[in-house]
C-alpha cells in the first residue's frame, strides 16, 4: 500500500499536499482499496468556506457513500471535474489524477500538525 512521504493524512484517510497556501486533498491508497469500485464523487462548491472536519465531499462505491472531510480550515478554490466522467480515477491514481479538491488554507501550519506518513502507516496497521 503506497503512502507518499511528502503528504499529510487524516485518520479518516484523506491526504493533503501543501504547496504555498494551497492544499490539494484526496483519499489514500488504503482508503480507495477498502472502498473499491468508486462510482460517484460529489465535489464541493467553489468558493465554499470550510472548517477543519467539515464534510465537504462524498465518495461513493457500489456498496456505500463515504463523507470526505476538510482536513484544515480554508476556502475551496478548485475541484477535480475529471471525476464526474471518470470517478474510478480515485481508485487507479489516488495521489495523482484522482485528487478531489484544493483549498486555500487559512493557516498553512495547520497542515504540518496533521499525521505524517509514518504516523498514518501505523494508524492503518
Amino acid at each position: 500500500m503506497s503512502i507518499p512521504s511528502d503528504l499529510r493524512f487524516l485518520d479518516s484517510h484523506e491526504w493533503v499536499r501543501l504547496e504555498g497556501d494551497t492544499a490539494t486533498v484526496g483519499i489514500s491508497d488504503h482508503a480507495q482499496a477498502e472502498l473499491t469500485d468508486i462510482v460517484f464523487v460529489e465535489l464541493p462548491e467553489l468558493e465554499r468556506a470550510a472548517d477543519a472536519g467539515d464534510p465537504v465531499a462524498v465518495v461513493e462505491s457500489v456498496k456505500a457513500a463515504s463523507d470526505i472531510y476538510a482536513p484544515v480550515a480554508g476556502e475551496v478554490i478548485a475541484v477535480n471535474s475529471d471525476l464526474e466522467a471518470d470517478p474510478a480515477l480515485v481508485n487507479t491514481d489516488p495521489y495523482g489524477n484522482g485528487w478531489l479538491f484544493k483549498l486555500r488554507v487559512k493557516n498553512p501550519e495547520d497542515v504540518a500538525a496533521l499525521m505524517d506518513a509514518a504516523a498514518y502507516q501505523s494508524h492503518i496497521g
Binding site: T36, D37, V39, S61, V62, K63
Partner: peptide, 8 residues
C-alpha cells in the same frame, strides 16, 4: 462475505 475483490 460482502465481497472478495470488487462487487463490480
Amino acid at each position: 462475505p460482502v465481497q472478495y475483490s470488487s462487487i463490480m
